[in-house]
Each structure stands twice: as C-alpha cells, then as structure tokens.
C-alpha cells in the first residue's frame, strides 16, 4: 500500500476555506492527495481509513461533479456515505439551516460535506455540529477543495507552483473558485493575475495583491497557467455583460488569444464548461494543452486527503 501514516501537520477541525491555512497545511493536504492518486488508478481502489465513519453530503445547491467526487472519495475510504440534496429535504418545507444542522448532528455523522448558495452558510452550519465540516462551496465565498485540486494539477504538471504566472479569467465577481484559488496560489508563491470585464471584477480585488487586467491580450501575456471560469448567469442579477456573443468575442478562450500565453501554457477550467461562452470547444478538448480532465481525476484524490485528514483529527481528539 502506497499510503503511509504521515505526521499530522494539519490541526484544524473543519475545512471551511483556504483563508487561514498556512502554506505547510496546504502542502500537507497536497502531499497526502498525491499518494491517493496512484491508488485511484488501481483495480482495487478501496482503503479502510474511514471504516465505520459516516459522511453526509449536504447539498443545498445542485451539483453533479462535486457531489459525485466527494461521494467516491468517501466510498474509496470505506466511509458510509449519505447524500442529501435540497430537492428532497425539509428546507423546502421551511426548516432553517440551523435546525437542519442540529437534526443531522443528532444522527452523529463524523464528517459533513456541505454546499450552500449563501456565502458564510457552511461556517454557520459548522457552529452547530460536533463533526468535521468540509465546505464544498458557499455562495461567492470559497470552494477550498477546488483550489486544492487545481493546485495539485498544476504541481503535478509543472513540478511546482511557486514562481508560475497564473491568469484567472472570467467571472471573478461571483466566483468562489476564484477567491479560493487567489488565496491558495498566492500563499504558495505563484503570481496571480485576474482577467475580466470590469463589471465582473470586485471593485477591491487589488487588495488581494493580484494583478488586474481587463483585456485578454495583456491578461494572458506570458501566462504559465490559464484558468478559465464559468460565466455564472444564475448568480447574476441584472446585466453584467451585454451579450454572450460579445463576451465570447472579448473573453472567450480561443487559440488566437491563447497565443499570447507561454507556448506550453496549461488550460484549466473548474467545470461545468459553457462551450462557446468562456471557452472555445476545440481548445477545451486539446489534449496537449487542456488539463480539465486531470482536474476531475485529482479532485477525488484531494477530497480523499481532506476527508482522511479531518477524520483523523477527530479520532485524535476523541
């Protein structure tokens, strides 16, 4: 078995965001995930690190890939995994988030993986349960496991994160993926540039210490990594861009625009992609340039690392 016992370098009870994590803690999670990657490629993918433990995936916002990724991660660690989604839950019947938290808590889960459409809602949930909580995305706030899997993808493809120029392009304003990535990549020593129309940039994004660009030409110049974001029309109230056609014309990733980046620049996207909106279909499918499917594969390993680390902390505390 390639998975060894590691000295515990991650002491937090929950994983609610990248904010507050030290570079050592991030590195610990990435190292741990690295070990799970190869294991996931074997015929027998089962480990018994979470045997006997219960994992509840609580999704107030629809999700296919993230929920499946967490479910697989839990099952590969032998946890008992239960999925709860908004459609079938009593939230629809008027129950408050805190009541839901306390109800689930009474069933003694060991880890709760939660996604919610409101920023801060997962942290609120964490205040009312005794188990470990992993934020699987809260509003426009954070999506820490996505940032971790992006970092692992970059590290495996490039051998390092430090010193690389990462251009994050698209709807920064509404994106929890962008926030978590900016925090993580900066903490690990990358140069981060955000590229978006001004209407999709927070007015104070510069406070993160990132470079800010409003056109793709200069935004992609010399980039090692081109990270595209989905245009989140469901989070938009009112008009942020005049039309999808104009958005694609200015900010959609095409080979023309990509020519400004480094010749071997890697293309990433957290999914689900809107082909023809933020990314040209053929660019997305370019197996030499695109790391999009790597991201999906490494997502399971990263989530296994997070689940394992947090439940290990619980056992240590018990």
């Amino acid at each position: 078995m390639a998975v060894h016992e590691l000295p515990q370098l991650f002491s937090k009870r929950h994983l609610l965001g990248i904010e507050g994590l030290s570079p050592y803690e991030i590195q610990h999670l990435l190292d741990r995930a690295d070990e799970f990657v190869d294991h996931g490629r074997q015929a027998n993918k089962k480990l018994d690190l979470m045997r006997g433990l219960t994992q509840i995936n609580l999704f107030f916002e629809s999700s296919t890939r993230t929920r499946t990724s967490f479910e697989l991660a839990g099952k590969r660690l032998s946890a008992d995994v239960v999925n709860m989604s908004i459609g079938s839950s009593s939230i629809k019947k008027g129950e408050t988030l805190i009541d839901t938290a306390m109800t689930l808590n009474a069933m003694h889960p060991d880890v709760l993986v939660a996604r919610h459409h409101d920023s801060g809602a997962v942290a609120l949930l964490a205040h009312h349960v005794n188990c470990a909580v992993i934020n699987a995305g809260d509003g426009s706030h954070e999506h820490p496991t996505q940032a971790l899997l992006d970092a692992l993808t970059i590290r495996r493809r490039r051998g390092r994160i430090s010193g690389l120029l990462v251009a994050i392009c698209g709807d920064i304003l509404h994106s929890r993926v962008a926030r978590s990535n900016i925090l993580l990549l900066s903490a690990m020593g990358a140069r981060v540039r955000v590229v978006a129309p001004k209407t999709l940039l927070p007015s104070t994004v510069g406070a993160y210490g990132v470079e800010v660009c409003s056109d793709m030409e200069s935004g992609l110049a010399d980039a090692d990594i081109v990270m595209m974001l989905r245009l989140q029309t469901e989070r938009m109230q009112g008009s942020f861009v005049p039309s999808v056609r104009e958005y694609f014309h200015l900010f959609g990733l095409t080979y023309d625009k990509l020519a400004k980046a480094k010749p071997d620049a890697l293309i990433m996207h957290p999914g689900p992609m809107n082909r023809g909106v933020e990314i040209d279909g053929t660019v997305a499918d370019d197996i030499h340039r695109s790391a999009i499917l790597d991201q999906v594969e490494l997502g399971v390993a990263v989530r296994m690392a997070c689940l394992d680390t947090l439940t290990r902390n619980l056992k240590a505390a018990a």
């Binding site: 920023s119 801060g120 509003g139 929890r176 007015s203 104070t204 994004v205 406070a207």
Partner: peptide
C-alpha cells in the same frame, strides 16, 4: 462594498 465584502463573497 469594499475589501471585506470581496473577501466574504457578499454583494
């Protein structure tokens, strides 16, 4: 609207 709102992901 400011740094804090950006960090917290609140409009």
């Amino acid at each position: 609207d400011g740094e804090m709102a950006t960090r917290l992901g609140l409009a």
